[in-house]
Design a protein around this nucleic acid. Structure first.
Ligand code: FES
Ligand code: FES
Lengths: 148, 148
DNA sequence: ACTAATCCTGATAAAATTAGTCAAGTATAA
DNA sequence: TTATACTTGACTAATTTTATCAGGATTAGT
């Protein structure tokens, strides 16, 4: 369990490239794609997801491409995986909320309370890692592009 | 992300029932199934998974059924979800090991190191919850069977 | 204005996974 | 002997994931 789909794995690799590119000119999908052997049309979808959630910005046209919308130390892996794979939760019913944004019912099944606590713990763990750390982790290494 | 499949959700509910039944006569699939509105044939598969991993024992024939193979405080939610949903890991390559049971290569992609650390953290979180806690959590409540 | 590069968007198709069913079999208790 | 209940493997249906594709809109450079 806990597995990321290709959508998630590709998205995180893209964010890694954008983090390394932060402050420079936009990076084109084609270039990101080439560096990690990811299919261009799929990556388009993936980056669109990240854009919808405000993690990246884009510039169209010649010399266009994507940039992070915040500095790498202000973007967490938690935000990234939530944008790419949906909310962090053990089940859907945990997420259902009433108009006041409170859980609809305190108890939904025998495990709901534990599911909620575990979900929060996991989200916290993912939020404790930033794109800056991801980038620095690899600053002195040549990574293997075809890892999946 | 982090979502459990029905396989996992059903399995945990079954384990909850078995935890409450610990020390008594075996509990039949049909009975467990009825209490939570789960399809019998599917639950058969699920309990078989738990048996293969040694979490439950079974007795066939009349008055047969399933029992926990250890006391509820000796079985963690981590063991359960791993039995039901496979190993806890962000990606498959993290799991590939050489004959000495070491990671095949230290670095697989830009995120592998972080994936590994996060996976371990999550596994630890799941292992910190036992079936006893799951059972006690609900000792004073009537749960809603049709939560999913 | 023209052109090439690039993002944008929605539709669609292929593949993989999950969910659930079914049937014939084996073991057990009464 | 009989009814009950687990065992096992095969099978189908539904859902999700993984892409692919086409046509459109925007921008930089000339
Ligand atoms: S399955 Fe979501 S709270 Fe029980
Ligand atoms: S995708 Fe598994 S280590 Fe990179």
């Amino acid at each position: 369990m806990l597995k990321l789909s290709n959508r998630g794995l590709y998205g995180i690799k893209a964010l890694y490239e954008l983090a390394n590119n932060y402050g420079k000119e936009p990076l084109a999908i084609r270039e990101i794609s080439k560096r990690h052997g990811m299919p261009v049309p799929f990556l388009e979808q993936v980056l669109h997801l990240l854009k919808k959630k405000g993690l990246v910005k884009s510039r169209r046209g010649s010399n266009g491409g994507y940039t992070l919308s915040r500095s790498p130390d202000k973007i967490t892996l938690g935000e990234a995986v939530i944008a790419l794979e949906g909310p962090i939760a053990l089940c859907d019913c945990i997420l259902k909320r009433d108009p006041d944004n409170k859980l609809e019912k305190e108890m939904r099944c025998v495990a709901s309370n534990i599911y909620r606590k575990l979900g929060e713990k996991v989200e916290q763990a993912f939020n404790s890692v930033t794109l800056l750390e991801l980038a620095e982790e690899n600053s002195d290494k040549t990574y293997i592009a075809t890892c999946k």
